[in-house]
Design a protein around this nucleic acid. Structure first.
Length: 476
DNA sequence: TCTGGGGTCCTAGGACCC
DNA sequence: TCTGGGGTCCTAGGACCC
């Protein structure tokens, strides 16, 4: 869902200037351009949940309000969400938990393992609420959405955005910030500035040039959407350190430095929309399931069990988008932070006519694993990558493929998915995944010494308030 | 003891073909 | 004995995002 190829990125609205006049427009042009020769300028609003994961936790635990709160990555590794209070005491994004023990103790920071079932459900609620305000909405990430406000020019856009914030807060409990601009990049800038500036009331409209100048002059170029650390360093060498300087820079020089991606960013900063709203979620081109282990793993059998579980997750995603996979890769690696001899190995297998059958993919993954496994190594992470994905309906058989078996495969998977959807994940699974994963967990699903080494650590997870009946909050 | 996971896009360079 | 160049496809690596 991020950068796209230039063709699909171009907003047709802006191609109109290249068309001599409606009379010469190709017959395939949308009718709108024949009716009106003034194509309306796009207006984007970016709505973004503040400290989203922490805010989700606060919704169900009001004692966290006004407290420093952080949410951790998988395996309780590092900080991936923090409240303003946590930011204020110096906790940074990505800080490893084991290095900030002092601050946590001193300030009584409330620490949580990530609970994606909860955050995913809260996200869906937020998006449903936003959809009430405009049919043109792009769900950009778990906590962000772009809205098109085209057609709302008649009203005060900042007022409308404040109304959106109020309703999202009322209906989901999630606080948001909203940035408005004529391009996605400017809407992103506006959103960030709105978050920083408390007097903005969480809303900033950067549609007019004077407002843009004012904000861009003070905006670090490294904070511009699409400019990462590498690009920022290159730009610094060119003497560009603010978003305003980037906007006004020689565009060809920028392209030379940052490729076509950089050029697009400059154009967007200038108010020329290159990145269109993408309302339909395209199918994934690859599906990855990989995780670090809770504890080091040494044995092939344990790796196989882990990989079987990852393949199962990946296959579920594959079937959800009705694709079949034609290439499967598996990788294993040591702990890159540990001062030991590093080992990384991966292997790939061709899945012939294509399949979305969990058992087949696990079997294939196992054979790859046997090839890349070396004895005597302390493994930290493994993963499965499904690629060369095509529509499941377009599976092509060769003379040697057993079509009957393929049809049986599909039936079996449909039954498994249906049961798991109704009774909960992993109610029905493939034997290779091991029953042991469920043994040795305490009541909250946290790991105990009996849990297999490969399973994730999540010792501070809250309940699934919105997705499990037994976890519903009791009032009174 | 302890450092996330899942994605996309762009470019350069090699292989291959004619 | 001399020994081209253009196009396409694929892959690996880099960069970025949340």
């Amino acid at each position: 869902m991020h950068e796209r190829d230039p063709q699909s990125q171009v907003n047709p609205a802006h191609l109109s200037s290249a068309v001599p006049s409606p009379a010469f427009a190709p017959t395939s042009a949308p009718n709108a351009s024949l009716i009106s020769n003034a194509t309306p300028a796009p207006i984007f609003a970016l709505v973004d949940g503040n400290s989203f994961y922490c805010s989700c936790e606060r919704v169900f635990n009001p004692s966290l309000i006004n407290q420093p709160v952080i949410v951790l990555s998988n395996n309780d590794g590092c900080v991936i969400s923090r409240t303003d209070e946590a930011k204020a005491i110096g906790i940074k994004m990505g800080d490893p938990l084991h290095l900030i023990g002092d601050i946590i103790k001193r300030h009584r920071v409330r620490v949580y393992s990530s609970n994606y079932a909860l955050y995913g459900d809260m996200s869906a609620r937020m998006m449903t609420t936003l959809a009430q305000f405009t049919p043109e909405l792009e769900v950009y990430s778990i906590d962000e959405a772009f809205l098109s406000l085209e057609g709302f020019e008649g009203r005060d856009l900042a007022d409308y955005a404040r109304e959106i914030r109020r309703v999202v807060r009322r209906d989901t409990g999630i606080p948001t910030a909203i940035g408005i601009g004529p391009t996605k990049v400017l809407a992103k800038v506006a959103n960030r500035a709105a978050k920083k500036n408390k007097i903005s009331g969480g809303v900033l409209n950067l549609c007019d040039r004077a407002a843009q100048d004012c904000v861009l002059a003070e905006f670090a170029v490294a904070d511009v959407w699409g400019i990462g650390a590498r690009s920022a360093a290159k730009l610094a060498r060119m003497g560009v350190s603010t978003a305003m300087q980037l906007r006004d820079a020689d565009i060809d020089a920028v392209q030379k430095l940052l490729t076509i991606v950089g050029r697009r960013i400059v154009l967007e900063l200038r108010g020329q929309s290159c990145l269109a709203l993408e309302m339909v979620q395209e199918d994934r081109k690859q599906i990855v399931s990989s995780k670090s282990f809770g504890r080091p793993v040494y044995k092939l059998d344990e790796l196989k069990e882990a990989v079987a579980n990852y393949a199962t997750r990946a296959c579920e995603k594959l079937r959800r988008q009705k694709s079949a996979c034609h290439t499967l890769s598996v990788f294993v690696q040591t702990n890159r932070f540990k001062d030991i001899a590093q080992y990384y190995n991966s292997g790939t297998v061709n899945m012939g006519a294509g399949t979305a059958n969990t058992s087949r993919l696990i079997a294939a993954a196992n054979s790859v694993l046997e090839n890349i496994f070396r004895d005597g190594i302390e493994y930290k992470k493994a993963g499965v990558i499904l690629s060369d994905l095509r529509a499941a309906s377009a599976v092509e058989f060769s003379l040697f493929d057993d079509q009957y078996k393929h049809a049986q495969d599909i039936k079996a998977m449909n039954v498994m998915d249906a049961i798991n959807a109704r009774m909960g994940r992993d109610t029905l699974g493939v034997g290779a995944c091991g029953a042991s994963a469920k043994v040795g967990q305490n009541a909250n699903g946290a790991s105990t010494p009996l849990t297999p080494a490969w399973t994730m650590k999540a010792n501070m997870r809250t309940k699934c308030y919105t997705t499990r009946w037994q976890d519903l909050l009791k009032v009174g």
